[in-house]
């Protein structure tokens, strides 16, 4: 019988994430994939600015802390100078799809051989719950107190759809961290992303729909329910681009 244990590449420390937050799950999935592929010693990770800013305390691989939004550029610098290393970024929606849009789009269009783990929870978590580029229409946040009105605040960005139009994107999949089935699928997707990188096939992004019970003002259970009933309809799960399947 297999005993469920902490992945080796996930450091044995307690995390600072709020109760019910899905960051911990996704951290674990990334580390399980790193362990299973046996690449811990050859991986360099890039942290963003946001709730996962201190991920370097959790991931046991060499880690670099980037400025807000710049993780794909930092990852490019690492990958270009050390092409034989696995390089991934771990970024939230404000980091990746607002301040770092240019870095994200251009890393993708260059076909930069890196893997991005993208946490979409429709809100800025660390700064206390402001509107993110992915905040849904009508969603109440600190900076959309009457609900996001697309007429003044614009529409949410669908990142996987956007990036899948770029030739340089090799793999783009949206997954969710709400149910055991979805979490298993998320892990498979993350593994796929790293394999695409291993095979030098180009840019891969795994978007993980996540929760933020604290800033959504919900219990963890309610938050999971919201993810299912409100987020997935707007952000459909699935593979948006897979050059390994195109023959």
């Amino acid at each position: 019988m297999a005993v469920y244990k902490r992945p080796h590449s996930l450091l044995d420390v307690s995390m600072h994430f709020c109760p019910g937050c899905t960051h911990g799950i996704v951290h674990r999935l990334v580390c399980e994939v790193i362990d299973e592929m046996g690449i811990e010693g050859d991986t360099v990770g890039i942290c963003p600015v946001g709730c996962s800013v201190t991920s370097y305390d959790y991931f046991g691989v060499d880690m670099i802390e980037a400025a807000h939004g710049r993780a794909p550029a930092v990852a490019t610098g690492v990958k270009r100078s050390r092409p034989d290393k696995f390089v991934f970024t771990y970024q939230g929606d404000g980091d990746l799809a607002a301040i770092g849009t240019a870095e994200t789009v251009h890393a993708a269009t260059r076909g930069e051989n890196i893997t991005i783990i993208f946490i979409n929870n429709t809100i800025y978590g660390m700064t206390g719950g402001q509107m993110a580029p992915t905040t849904l229409p009508g969603q109440v946040t600190q900076t959309t107190p009457f609900g996001r009105d697309p007429l003044t605040a614009g529409y949410p960005v669908r990142v996987c759809e956007l990036l899948s139009t770029l030739t340089g994107t090799a793999y783009a999949e949206r997954v969710a961290a709400d149910s055991p089935a979805h979490i298993a699928a998320a892990k498979k997707a993350i593994r796929k992303g790293f394999e695409v990188q291993q095979n030098k096939q180009g840019f891969s992004i795994i978007e993980v729909l996540s929760t933020c019970p604290t800033n959504w003002g919900m219990t963890p259970v309610q938050a999971m329910e919201r993810l299912r009933t409100e987020m997935i309809p707007y952000y459909p799960l699935g593979v948006y681009k897979d050059i390994t399947a195109e023959k």
Partner: peptide, 23 residues
């Protein structure tokens, strides 16, 4: 490595990454 970045901001952050990896 020569790379034309998408902005000066990206370029200096690429330098940051490369310097962090020791080159």
């Amino acid at each position: 490595v020569f790379l034309q970045a998408e902005s000066e901001i990206a370029a200096v952050n690429m330098v940051y990454g490369a310097a962090a990896s020791g080159v």
